[in-house]
Every structure is written in structure tokens, then in C-alpha cells.
Design a protein around this nucleic acid. Sequence first.
DNA 1: TGCATATTTGCAGTGGCTGCAATTATCAGC
DNA 2: GCTGATAATTGCAGCCACTGCAAATATGCA
Lengths: 205, 205
Amino acid sequence: MASTSTPETGCGLRERKKLATRAALRHAAVTLYRQHGPDSVTVEDICAAAGVSPRTFFNYFETKDEAVLSFSEGTPQRFRQRIIERPAEESPIQAIHAAFAERLAELKADETWRERTLLLREHPELLPRLNHTNRAIEQAVIDAVVARTGLTECDVYVRTTAAVAFSAYRVVIGCWQPGTGPDLIDLLDQAMDLVRRGLAPPART
Amino acid sequence: MASTSTPETGCGLRERKKLATRAALRHAAVTLYRQHGPDSVTVEDICAAAGVSPRTFFNYFETKDEAVLSFSEGTPQRFRQRIIERPAEESPIQAIHAAFAERLAELKADETWRERTLLLREHPELLPRLNHTNRAIEQAVIDAVVARTGLTECDVYVRTTAAVAFSAYRVVIGCWQPGTGPDLIDLLDQAMDLVRRGLAPPART
DNA sequence: TGCATATTTGCAGTGGCTGCAATTATCAGC
DNA sequence: GCTGATAATTGCAGCCACTGCAAATATGCA
């Protein structure tokens, strides 16, 4: 449990209880969302399943969906850092590609992430509500490109690169079919290859 | 007024009244949003300004934001059609580029669109809530690429092309500075050029 | 004019979300 | 262990977005 939380668990009882409550709420929310559909689950239901009062829910999450959709703290920062730390000779898009590949390799093994991915496939109406999270990550990519190039945040090259790379990343996750289809990383390579070639149409078979 | 509505105004009084009410609600919503900020405006406020009952608001729009953010009916279909009708010798990305350029040329002249653009600049917290609209347009682009290539909707090339092109389009609108900066269409050409070159880093000056 | 049909409205209710103040649980010093 | 400072949980009252339903009103048409 709490697999999306930062591993440095505080030693105090208080800290541990908070982590546990957070995890319980997350788990209850995902489970109930998958069982009954997002709109048929109330905050009250989630709290009943997690054993806390409804009011407490909003001490942990700002919105009902956040219990299901939010990443662990620091995810955008880690994206940024990873891209920045790639070898200097890589072009921005290459560095982003490599950083995304590293990240996907981790996520493939993360049980919580896989469950959330399933949930999003079962209830696509949730996708729009991911926007808050997505924007944070896209901003992280922008920051990283700024750091690598010295250009400004408003530069068209900077913004286009970040937006294009991130949309390829999302496409890949959207196309992925756990189990049956090609591997996540292979899909990412495929999409990034298309981008590198300027989206030239594929040869007809 | 009602500049985002389809021009074929029905001749009957009923039709005209509905159009007028819709336009009044839209106008009141945008004005109040700009004056007081989206979260300080209630549906009741909007209805008071438009002279209808609060219950009526929800006969016209599904959510409060929709009065401000939704496009006119048929916008996605028109996007799709425009892309499909480009000359067959153009590659998908070229066809999308051309269709987007046509669309932007229209929008530049649309008073309502400019006002909404200003609103989004003043209150960026609204951007995530555009997702509903954005997804409809991206789907239209996907459909168009499917029609042009005969590939399936789930094909990685199809999805990547649509997502990348549309994200470039959004970047352009986001970077645009009405009045002071470069022209919208020039920005689009710039971004699409970057995409065609596979986001190769710009030459250092 | 008068009937069929659309539109508007009021009303009652659900549920997300918030501020506040009271209660309960943890912690640190002794 | 005991105690006061501090933090987390909870209940409560309330705002507001949004919905279904049925009554009232406006429009279109014969």
C-alpha cells in the first residue's frame, strides 16, 4: 500500500497514521470507482470504506477525484530532474524520450499505477479530469527544456517540444494494451520515431 | 451577438428567442467571469444578468463553465471536414496544418473568440476545464486522419499525428500575444515547421 | 380562436466542498 | 507515567452546482 507515496516514512506514529489513512482512502476510492463507476460513488462511501469521517477526506484531498487521480508528491520535479540530467550531447527531444522511457519502465512495475490505468480504460470519462496532473508534468518538461537550452519559457521551440513530446507520451499510454499488445517502451520508441521523422506517413504495405 | 452560433437562423420566433437566450447567457457569463473571476460568479448571477431563471440555464448548458467555454455546435465536424477535403497529395500533417491555418484565420476575426482568449489569459485556471472541448476536436482530427489514410483509429501513427498536431495548435494559441507579437498564422507555421523537422534544436545565434 | 407542442419556471432534493469550533490523539519535557 | 502544547479528526451548518418532475406559460398551426 501507499506505493505512490515517497518512501521516506517518518518514524513518528502520527506520520505513519497519516500515511495509512491516505493510502486507505486512495485504495477505497480506486476500488469503489472500479466497482460502481466514478459518478455512483460518493465521498461518504469512500470514507465509510476507509473508516474515517467524510470531513476528514477533504483534509487529505482537495476533490473527490484527487484520491484516485493524483500522483505522489514530487513526481513533476522528478520528471524535470531526470530530463535535465541526461547527457548534454542529447537533443532536448532525445533527452525527454530517454527520461520518459526510464519512467515508463518504473511505472510498468507499479501496481497502483497499473490499477489506475485499468480504471481509466474502464471509465474514460475520467480522462479529462487528469488535466490538473498533466499540466504539472508538462510544465516540468518545459522547465527542463529551458534548463537544457537556455531559451525562455515562452519560446515556441520550447513549448512545442514539451507539448509534442508529452502528447506522444500520453498517446502511448492510451494505446497500450497490457498483456496482449506490444511493450510500453516499444510503443514509446515507435511514437518518438514518428516524431523524429516529422510524422512522415508510414510506407503503405 | 451569438457570433459562435451557426448562421442559419431559423425563421420562427421560437428559434430566434432560443438563439437570443443562448447568446445572452453566454455574453453575461463571459462578462461576469472577466469582471469578478470564474469562482466568484454563480449561475444565479449569470441568470440575473441574462434575465432568465436559474433552472433555465441548465436547459442550455450542462455546466456553468460551458456557457463560457463551449464552441458552437458542429465545430469538431467542420474541423474534420476541412482536413478531409485537403488535396489528396498532402501528407496528413500537411493537411492538418493547412486546415488549422484556415481555421485560425477565421478565428482571428471572431470577436467572441478573441474575448474568450482574453478571458483564458486572465484566468488560466479555466484552461483545464477546456478539456471537454479539446477532446472533441482531437477526436475530429483522429477521424480525419483515419479517413485520409485508411488506417485504424487505434493506430499509433494516427494517434500520434493527431495529438502532436493538435498540441502544436494549442501551443500557438497559448504563445500568441494579440497586438504585440507575431501573427497567429506565422506562429502556426513556425510550430509546424519545428514538427516537420522532428523538433531538431534551433541553431544557436 | 383553440388545440398541440416547446419552453420556462419553481420546488424539492442530492452531493461536493468549506469554515468553524469542539473533541480526541500524539508528542515532548519532566 | 503525567501534563501541557500541538496536530488530526469530527460534527455541524451552510453554499452552490446540478437534476427530475410537474405546473405554468409561450409559440406554432389549423
